[in-house]
Amino acid sequence: MLDLVWAYVLVFVLSAVPFFEAIIITPVAIIAGIPAIPVFILAIVGNLLTVYLIILFIEKVRSWRKKKGDNGKRSGRAKQLWNKYGLPGLSLLGPFFVGSHLTAFLSLIFGGTKKRVTLWLTISVTGWSLVFGILAYFGIDWLNVDNQFLEGIFKQ
């Protein structure tokens, strides 16, 4: 029981970390054998919690980002998505190219409102996590794949 609690904590924490995120952690945890529904909920909450914090504290994040310096390659990809598809496109595709946290930040920088960025990123993170979680859940069931390596990581 305690191992399962630690696995859930790990899912929550890793999904909150930029570039790990819910769309990656959800299928990995499901493949590892952790129950799908709690994994999905914890991964979404962990990921969106930190995204919402970025949206809420955008001014502080902007000043921190200026001090740190901008990653031109990632920002360039995001700007291309923004110019071509707008906020919905960047929100739906951004998590794959730059991560949901940077997508939130850049969406606000490029002109999105806090309310619309929050809505679109909630749709994106939840939707993609659900899709990948379902694929992982049923894909493993259909293929009957034994993942002792991943199960070992989460059960230790």
Rank of each mutant, 00 (worst) to 15 (best):
N47K: 06
F97Q: 06
T50V: 07
K68W: 10
L53M: 15
G86T: 11
S63C: 05
K68P: 07
N83M: 10
V45P: 01
F96A: 14
S63A: 13
G86K: 13
K67Q: 14
L49R: 04
Q80Y: 10
D70T: 08
P95K: 12
S100L: 02
G76S: 09
G94C: 06
A43Y: 04
I55P: 08
V45Q: 01
G69F: 03
V61F: 14
G46Y: 08
N83S: 13
N83I: 06
K67T: 09
G94Y: 03
I44K: 00
R77Q: 07
I58E: 11
V51C: 04
Y85T: 04
L81K: 03
Y52P: 06
W64Q: 10
L81E: 03
G69T: 06
W82T: 04
V51I: 14
S91C: 14
N71V: 14
I55C: 07
S75V: 11
Q80L: 11
W82C: 05
L93I: 10
G99Y: 10
K60W: 13
N71E: 14
K66C: 00
V98G: 00
F57R: 15
Q80P: 00
G89T: 05
S91D: 10
E59T: 10
S63W: 14
K60D: 12
I58M: 11
G99E: 08
I44S: 01
G86S: 08
E59F: 02
L92S: 02
V98D: 00
G72A: 09
N71G: 00
G89C: 02
R74G: 13
L48E: 08
L93V: 05
L93Y: 03
L56G: 15
L87V: 10
L92F: 15
S63R: 15
R74M: 14
L53Y: 08
S100K: 01
K84L: 09
L81F: 12
R65C: 00
V61M: 12
Y52C: 07
L87M: 09
N47M: 02
K60M: 08
I58W: 09
